[in-house]
Nucleic acid binder design. Sequence first.
DNA 1: GCCGTTTTCGGCCCGACTGTTTTCAGTCG
Length: 566
Amino acid sequence: MKNQEVAKLLYEIADLLEIEGVEFKPRAYRKAAQNIESFSIDIEELYKKNELKSIPGVGKSIEEKIREYLETGRINKLEEMRKRIPIDIESLSKIEGLGPKMIKALYEQLGVKNLDDLEKAAREGKIRKLRGFGEKTEKNIIENIEIARKRQERFLLGFALKDALEVIDLIKGHVEKISLAGSIRRRKETIGDVDILAIAKEPHKIMDIFTSMKKVEKVIAKGDTKSSVRLYGGLQVDLRIVDKESFGSALQYFTGSKEHNIELRKIAIKKGYKLNEYGLFENDLRIAGEDEEKVYKMLGMQWIPPEMRENRGEIELALDGKLPKIVEYEEVKGDLQMHTVWSDGANSIEDMVEEARRLGHKFIAITDHVGSLKIAGGMDEKKVIEQGKEIEKLREKYDDIYIFHGVEANIMKDGELDVSNSLLKDVDVVLASVHTAFRMNEEEMTARVIKAIKHDYVDIIAHPTCRIIQEREPIKVDIEKVLQSAKDNNVVMEINAYPDRLDLNDINTKLAVEIGVKLSIGTDAHTIDHLRYYELGTAVARRGWAKKEDIINTYTVEELKKLFGK
DNA sequence: GCCGTTTTCGGCCCGACTGTTTTCAGTCG
């Protein structure tokens, strides 16, 4: 699927156009890029069917460029622009306070093309002399270069969420109301910073508590309405105090996404209203603002769960009153992938059972590695049988949780599993996944995974694309074909809930739901501490619009046994 | 460059903040 690839090029064209001072076109390109990037249909399929224009925001001209790229591997106009403006915009625009206009001025007047040039010019005191720039701007640039170099891109949701919830815990006793906002409230897989909103009678007292927390490394800004801190580890947290009558609209506004908000504001305009962070206004009269639900209601639409607010079609559905009822966090009743000391996990089966009970799970699947993955302690048939006996004993001891005996087998290069059927036939649930030979072409890799899907004993394909966020690209598979095959063969696809996997991701989950594939949530826990990540899996499910019936972790133990053929 | 329940031409989201200015452009979220 080349959607991300094409989107990236369109974003680059947008950046370059903006540098050139072209109006409105950058917005058009970005809009098209955004839609392509979150489109669950393969852009190459649309191209073959001559339906590229069915993507919102893609008209004659952008269609032509996509066509050119898919046919020749390049876009002439982009190549020309790159030659004309040889600037590393991507890294330069990461500098806080540096936008296209300033990048353009720096290039034209000082020849700044990249971070190194920028730093040199700043340190030599050349920037302050430019019209529109000054000493302060130059000083900020120097500081922000350091930060941009040090900062590792974005933070994983799973890690940031823990810090964010701890911050809220510290403050919530002192405020009237408090909520996460921003991408972390939408449970995006990575987040830039944490946004928190609160109502407070004595703002500066709250700000004192906030800025003097133990985990604060640096106070970036401190005022009565907004303070920002950087925690140890680099995560930035912003706390805003808002008025009670604006809390809902501020929450809506700061939750985003930006694209979602833009659409909402257009709807407001059509109705003759104005929507901003202070409320929804008819003339100067505030007709909604205190609660978020009412803001949506007054715009004539259903309230939209934060996880869905990405402008991927949710607004149209909410206007029609046809939003799908997505799975709720408390409907997920168990965890279907985890490891123990029987392979590469750190805890015993009983430890995992105890912790799962504490989390309120009704069932878990112990899915230790089997077969050739010796580095992960892959068990042989004899050990699997022994493990089964231990699980049987624990089932007798605990009657409030059911323990499925599972295994995780490897899908070898040829699509066969690395263990015999005799090992698999007696366990309750068989996960299969790719752990080796990640670099295969799409055709071979797709065939490999589909062969595993068709295997007699495979119930679930675990971490289907094998990506590691910010570390390893997904394997090259034709995800639509894989999902269709899963549907045809009644095989479940996993949403791996481990913080750096989240695989399937939100977009592929949405596609799976559309195709009708059942999904399972597994934490892939290797210690008892990892078990709490199951909520991240639910978050991905919600971002992919999965309903309760799409997620097998909402089933009863009896229903699961039936599904696994036991 | 795209788009249309005001439009096939003329619009394209909104407000705050910063740093530079002396009334505002640029950037950010």
